[in-house]
Amino acid sequence: MTTDTNRPLIEVRHLCKEFHNSRHDMEVLHDISVNFYQGDVAFIVGPSGAGKSTFLRCLNHLEEATSGEILFEGVNTLDAKVDIDALRQKMGMVFQQFNLFPHLSVMSNLTIGPMKLQGLSKEEAEERAIKLLKRVKLEDRAASYPNQLSGGQKQRIAIARSLCMEPDVMLFDEPTSALDPEMVGEVLEVMRELAQDKMTMIVVTHEMAFAREVANRILFMADKQILEENDPDNFFDHPQNERLRAFLDKMI
């Protein structure tokens, strides 16, 4: 696929991440450098414990990187002066466990961000929210509360909630892993449409077939590093890395 600008949307340089506890330090990301461009639909796959989710969470500072640089729209976000809250408004995130706000209606889940953080009036925010609810085909559930929804519906609302902030990039952290199998399809459908609409997406997932269908780039993470990166067809049909070949043998 093409890039709209020459400059990457996100540049990751020599990113390292260690977790510390009283007994020992554990390195989970080792010297990762990678670029993401406007319009990218990048999928990150790999074995459990490879650091995929941690990498994604470093991008919007839910985890603090230990060293390295993360440039978002040209600004190093690890600089202490950067307003992380403003950065996060531009980076939507979808979680494995949905994390909807259970005390707020579906509508309020979507509108509270735009109203409190972007200064939209209630009417403006609701107008924006209704468009997104239609997009995820849940406009009839605006008045519902999260616990009245199925898992698949919750995740579609969570996606709509992130989109309601009109982010520049969407991060998906295993969005279908907590779902019953019959609900995976409806969530993937929403993501497929997002990709078709040229939303920049970085997706951590175990859905290999979906990755092959939707991604323009696939990254293989194992042993705290990105070991291989390729377009979907070459990634699956001509894997170079030994670990990737073993991984694909097991997955498919």
Binding site: D85, L87, R88, Q89, F95, Q97, N99, G113
Partner: peptide, 20 residues
Amino acid sequence: GQFEAGASLGFSYTQTMMYF
């Protein structure tokens, strides 16, 4: 996850506490 959801939308710690 509720703290993270608030943070990921761009709410500060204090706002996340107050609203969510």
